[in-house]
């Protein structure tokens, strides 16, 4: 499951969580999970101010084909100057485990 910006949603993806109106996120769902996305459905979500949706699998990869290793490598690059400081090292570890959690590890990518 991946949370994606609505602008990147494409017909053929499957909704993984109920979709709510953008202005009332705890109201009645406007579309149930398991529904196959179509162009008209995406347009309707847009009209209802939906900003993001959860879809099955991990269909959207930012900026082309960045692998999990690349993403971790970029994280290392951003922290290169400040990793020796304890608070920054803590933030680095938190981000690293966040990324591992959100990407479902490297194996998920291989499987697709």
């Amino acid at each position: 499951m991946q949370k994606i910006p609505l602008m990147l949603a494409k017909a053929g993806m499957t909704i993984a969580r109920d979709v709510f109106r953008g202005d009332s996120p705890i109201g009645i769902p406007i579309c149930g999970k398991g529904t196959l996305l179509t162009d008209s459905l995406i347009a309707r979500f847009d009209n209802m101010d939906v900003q993001s949706i959860y879809v099955e699998g991990h269909p959207v990869w930012e900026e082309g084909e960045r692998s999990f290793d690349d993403i971790l490598h970029e994280l290392d690059g951003r922290f290169i100057k400040t990793l020796q400081e304890p608070l920054n090292a803590m933030l680095y570890d938190i981000y690293k485990s966040y990324l591992i959690k959100s990407m479902g590890g490297d194996s998920d990518r291989q499987a697709e």
Partner: peptide
């Protein structure tokens, strides 16, 4: 936090010290 997440671009790409 935003520098750590790499979102957007603020000139350099380095996370400042907390």
């Amino acid at each position: 936090l935003i520098k750590a997440s790499g979102f957007g671009n603020s000139g350099d790409c380095f996370v400042p010290s907390i």
